[in-house]
Design a protein around this nucleic acid. Sequence first.
RNA 1: UCAGAUGGUCAGGCAAUCGCUGUGAAGCAAUUCAUGGAGGAAAGUCCGGGCUUCGUAUGAGACACAAUACCGGAUAACGUCCGGGCGGGGUGACCCGAUGGAAAGUGUCACAGAAAAUAAACCGCCCAUGUUCGCAUGGGUAAGGGUGAAAUGGCGAGGUAAGAGCUCACCGCGCAGGCCGAGAGGCCUUGUGGCAGGACAAACCCUAUUGGAAGCAAGACCAAAUAAGACGGCCGACGCUUGCGUUGUAAAAGAACAGUCUCAGGUUCGUCGUCGCUAGGUAGGUUGCUUGAGCGUGUCAGUAAUGACAUUGCCAGACGAAUGAUUGCCCUUUUGACAGAACCCGGCUUAUCGGCCAUCUGACUUU
RNA 2: GGAGAGAUGGUCGAGUGGUUUAAGGCACCGGUCUUGAAAACCGGCGUGGGGGUUCCCCCACCGAGGGUUCGAAUCCCUCUCUCUCCG
Length: 120
Amino acid sequence: MTLGRMKRHFDFLEMREAPTKAFTKSFVLQVRPNDKGVTRVGFTVSKRISKLAVVRNRLRRQMREVVRLSPDIQTKYPSHDLVLIAKGEALNRDYTQLTKDFAYLLDHVHEVADDKKDNG
RNA sequence: UCAGAUGGUCAGGCAAUCGCUGUGAAGCAAUUCAUGGAGGAAAGUCCGGGCUUCGUAUGAGACACAAUACCGGAUAACGUCCGGGCGGGGUGACCCGAUGGAAAGUGUCACAGAAAAUAAACCGCCCAUGUUCGCAUGGGUAAGGGUGAAAUGGCGAGGUAAGAGCUCACCGCGCAGGCCGAGAGGCCUUGUGGCAGGACAAACCCUAUUGGAAGCAAGACCAAAUAAGACGGCCGACGCUUGCGUUGUAAAAGAACAGUCUCAGGUUCGUCGUCGCUAGGUAGGUUGCUUGAGCGUGUCAGUAAUGACAUUGCCAGACGAAUGAUUGCCCUUUUGACAGAACCCGGCUUAUCGGCCAUCUGACUUU
RNA sequence: GGAGAGAUGGUCGAGUGGUUUAAGGCACCGGUCUUGAAAACCGGCGUGGGGGUUCCCCCACCGAGGGUUCGAAUCCCUCUCUCUCCG
């Protein structure tokens, strides 16, 4: 029941070609299956969100907490890579709203992934 | 009590639950336990160092370039700090000042104005001559007007045709002298000069002092991919232990090498074979990486910056980057200032809701 | 993290102390020409504030704020923003 953390720059570049994604006003979620048998998650908060390092750090910590406390990631996406990218709207939301956004993202991705599988 | 000045300090606190990360211990291991875990600015990268590499890095000198600029002290060093001087502001505590030289030289000072820097004369004022009585010509003058950011000491008296440092008193200024001070500088019932020397050096410059360059993405070690070099002999030189070690122009001349040049010194530049399982080193990993001109406390020296001694503890060390999330209570004021270490220190500058402490100033009241 | 460059009207861009009328091009607006348009030619054209009143005048603005100077887009300092390079 351990969540892997994605840290290599190379992995993030690969995720740009991820087959399945999901969007809200606060986040972009990229999802891709891997062959490591572990679900790994990466986070991106760019300088475009805010120039202040304090603001970016707090947002990333909240995102990490949201993902950590979501119980059904592993059951929905076993052995997948996920990258959660923050958008500017995320700064205007509190913790509970971010939780709801992430839950919405997980469901939304599932549908898109099914469509992709039908096409391929 | 109100208003203010200066310096210092804090940066919401406590508890619970679930998590992150360094170190140590236990364990075959998963993991468990203990313990440490952002700032006064961590920021801007504006200065000064340490450290590392570059060719030795403090070899010497000259030039160029850059920076700094009252005096004395502090410091590893500084453009920083402390004390003092001078100028300016404030009733005052106190604050502000890129504060050397314009008498070494060059340059600039638009427009306006007669004239903008070895003075000059537009309107004036005065004298002489001429006169058509409007004035014209020649000369004297710089007090007044006007222009400008700035007009060649100020004011009064004497003086004169009118005036003028032309003369004199006072003030200002320069030079010299004396006294005080470590010095910047200050003071003088002192002498002297009739005043020469407008402003700009954040214009060039002069004088004095300082500075090699690049930066932890420096650098060191291990080492996929890819690709080409590495090692040994010969010859020569040097050393002694005389058969090994060190080395590649050693004898002469020359070339290249970090702003330029000179002197001194240094490095590199021979040839033939062998190996491809080797060598170098990219991705990646390890290291540099935190014990330090450190911080705290106390005593002593000093007006102070700071220094000396004693003592206790080891006080972040990450690398897509650790301090968070949620809940409750308390505090002030909705709500919680500015803001996140990235090799490490000393400063400066900038951002910052407020609270607290100390010393001092002014006004009012009371005793 | 470190090193460097830049910012001038709607846009591109010259100007390096002196009423700069803040050149010039593009874009935009009006006119001439045309059946109409394009091209060409001629003229106009930044923003904000104030004063008189339909046409002028004055002031401010060259990323922001200070300073030097009689005078700053220009020289000096601080800040903001943008871009480039170093694995």
